[in-house]
């Protein structure tokens, strides 16, 4: 239902433009940061800061990508196990077939795009519910990764080995052994690029259009199917990029893991203002939302809670975020 009162509509929209929810999320991030810093001296250290970032890159990247299918009103549950699968395959080629590292990385990302394409086709062309499609590809990628590498953990080249340069993509070591988290730069660039794509290109415009009113978009002459597929390709590709971030940070990649990563990414996106029913959302919002989750995940152990608590808290925060969405909508109807 549209807001009947013109002036009320105006104020609401200007608040929206300031990014009401984003602002609140930003406050939460700052609050959490201060809280953890006060509670634990260790948290205040520079090395902790760097390691928080290390553990965040891959989730942030997944979150940027999954924002697109979420905005179409769908979801991509395959990104978590997919990430591990792509990383395993890329690492396997590098370690056992002596493929150059850059080529291995390329394969990793393209594999992600391919699974994204598969998801998109099943959703857009065959009309299968997105959660079901991606639940299946989630399992398939999990099995596939293990089978391809033969069930063993894969180690991408370490920093001192030849080809280890790729680990410096996210973290530079200086001569005095101080780490510089240059991964931030890439994340910021990608966030800016994808923000641009979402807000200023046809791809983004039609992604929102599909989530907002698919039929109206189709009647306006938009090739709805192609753009629907593309949303999943973007999500898959970013899962591939996340796989590289993951490989660069962790020494070995274990087959069979990765389940649950997708929830952190999707949860972050929804906390950051992506509507669970599609149509609304921003890349910067997803970034902020996912930072909340990463902070909780890395901060909780510093105040004596195991990381397991974070799983509970993520689940509850996700439900809470959607509930707020539901309440808002109910109010609008009234």
């Amino acid at each position: 239902m549209a807001n009947r009162n013109g002036t009320a509509g105006k104020t609401k929209s200007s608040l929206d433009r300031l990014g009401g929810q984003k602002f609140v999320v930003l406050l939460v991030i700052v609050g959490l940061f201060i809280f953890f810093s006060l509670m634990s001296p260790n948290f205040r250290k520079y090395t902790t800061f760097v390691s928080i970032l290390d553990y965040s890159y891959y989730i942030v990247l997944m979150s940027i990508g999954v924002t697109f299918p979420l905005i179409t009103g769908g979801v991509d549950l395959s990104i978590g196990t997919g990430l591990i699968c792509y990383s395993l395959v890329g690492g396997y080629l590098i370690s056992f077939y002596h493929v150059p590292v850059w080529a291995g990385m390329l394969v990793t990302v393209l594999f992600g795009s391919a699974i994204g394409l598969l998801n998109g086709c099943l959703v857009a062309l065959m009309d299968i519910p997105p959660f079901l499609v991606t639940l299946c590809t989630c399992m398939i990628t999990r099995g596939l990764g293990s089978i391809i590498v033969g069930g063993f953990g894969i180690t991408w080249p370490t920093a001192i080995q030849p080809g280890g340069w790729f680990r410096n993509i996210f973290k530079l070591s200086t001569a005095s052994n101080t780490k510089i988290p240059i991964g931030i730069i890439w994340v910021v660039i990608l966030v800016l690029v994808m923000s641009f794509v979402l807000n200023h290109t046809k791809v983004g415009r039609y992604t929102i259009g599909i989530g907002s009113n698919k039929e109206a978009a189709r009647l306006s002459g938009v090739n709805v199917k192609a753009y629907h597929i593309l949303a999943y390709v973007i999500s898959g590709t970013f899962a591939g990029l996340a796989a590289i971030a993951y490989s660069a940070v962790f020494s070995t990649v274990q087959p069979g893991t990765g389940a649950g990563f997708e929830l952190e990414a999707i949860g972050g996106a929804i906390i950051g203002g992506v509507s669970a029913s599609g149509g609304a959302g921003t890349v910067t919002g997803s970034l902020l939302g996912v930072l909340v989750i990463c902070l909780l995940k890395t901060g909780l152990p510093f105040i004596g809670l195991t990381a397991n608590w974070q799983q509970n808290i993520t689940g509850l925060v996700l439900i809470g975020a959607v509930m707020i969405d539901v309440i808002k909508k109910r109010r609008e109807v009234k």
Binding site: A2, G209, N213, A216, A217, L219, V222
Partner: peptide, 24 residues
């Protein structure tokens, strides 16, 4: 037949956006 999440101008020109390079 409206796309509620888009702006007025975006709705009017959906499917035939003006472009500047790759950007709308």
């Amino acid at each position: 037949n409206m796309l509620g999440h888009l702006t007025v101008a975006q709705n009017i020109f959906i499917g035939r956006e003006f472009k500047k390079g790759i950007a709308i």
